[in-house]
Design a binder for these strands. Structure first.
Lengths: 139, 139, 139, 139
DNA sequence: GTGGTCTAGACCACC
DNA sequence: GTGGTCTAGACCACG
């Protein structure tokens, strides 16, 4: 699938799954009516316990992003894109906010903070272009 | 003292104490030789369990930022400023990096991410100026 | 046919089919010798997986309510009415019992529970009369 | 504590715990600020796996009935009574409704249904008085 | 001590 | 095959 689990970024695995599926719905990687990978399938792919995936899916149901089709699987709901787009900004803003708050209290000037952010964004861009070139090689 | 604890920003309380004390040393809020508040005192001020403060101090000793003066308390070490300045950038960069990584994977464009960051920075600026005006009232 | 499936009332679909067919036999909606709809037919009508209907029919055969007539289909047995009438009261009593037990443990007074029951019964009466008027329109 | 788990009433154990704790808050068995039994404690008392209790508590947090006090336990929230009272009626009404709906479709007359309900309520009353007499003996 | 997370593996009902 | 539930037991962070 399309998920990248990073065990050391402070977020629980199940939470990373929840967030990334929401993000995927928000950015047109998943559409209403799509069946998402089965619990066992995704668990195998992420090398993670099925219960962990199951828990993530359960939360996504509680958040009205998924519904179960009995004996069939889990489906993206009709209003998922809307709620997920809202959630995406909210979830990211929350994390960004608390990080920036700490940075701001750290005694660094806004200039210095901007510099760090720029540096990390550039690093990401490099990583991305490296990945996409890798993908081109693969294709 | 000068610490602001936020129980819901994902960081453990003890970790917030550690980081903020390091930041304070790095930004000339604390100098080598300064005695820091006792465990009980700080715990009371932050409305936090003394064990939590104790653990933070323990880590700061392990990182050579604090040193015990027998019968007196904990003192900022001579080379604390140097190590803390290094730590500050590293600690902040790490957090910023993992947040930006998630944002980047979320499907938002770099422009949109920049916009969120700008918004949150502005919000912080407002908050800061409000606080400083409050402080002036208090003084 | 005469079945109303509600996927969210806690009972499995196949179980709802089993119960409602028994109820229908008990209340003279189906008579001994009647042929019931084929698995495919009923599955299509209820928009349900044929396996689900199949399972319901299997249980009804095990309970001696239905019997296979080779090359013809499933037929209501001779003693079905008798057993279904017993079953009807038993099945309903069981469900009612466990619900009332929970209600009783909930801290509500018997009066309050009676009130809720009355309210829900009234709601059903309204629904019923609305349905029957709809049915008259259809005829 | 005050919980009675019935493994055969169709509801999952974790769900019974959730409902009964809500009921307990609604009926003044638990008050805002109260610390509820620890996961391990309740699990032991109910002879149930700690994870099952943990899951129930997690849902109660999601429903804003409980909040975690880190390293201390779970506390009943301030607005819990209000939300729980609403929930109590809603949860019971839902179950009662679906049971009565089935009863109504079963071909029994309203009189017959009333009779069954009365019978089961009486049975509960007897059980209750027996329990309370048992309790008096014990005291 | 507390709750939170994760793993491993089992059984169930349903389709 | 699917998801849902439960058990057993482990490890972690926190107070």
């Amino acid at each position: 699938m399309f998920l990248h689990i990073n065990p050391n970024n402070g977020l629980a695995i199940y939470d990373q799954i929840v967030r990334q599926i929401k993000f995927s719905v928000a950015s047109d990687g998943l559409y209403p009516g799509d069946l998402i990978p089965s619990v066992r399938e995704l668990a195998k792919e992420l090398a993670v316990n099925p219960n962990t995936v199951s828990r993530a899916y359960r939360e996504l149901q509680a958040d009205q992003v998924l519904i179960t089709i009995r004996g069939t699987g889990l489906q993206v709901t009709q209003n998922a894109p809307e709620t997920c787009k809202k959630d995406r900004t909210r979830l990211l803003s929350n994390r960004i906010q608390s990080v920036l708050q700490e940075a701001s209290q750290s005694g660094l000037t806004r200039q210095e903070i901007d510099q760090i952010i720029k540096k990390e964004l550039d690093r990401l861009d490099k990583k991305k272009s490296k990945n996409s070139s890798t993908e081109s090689k693969e294709s």
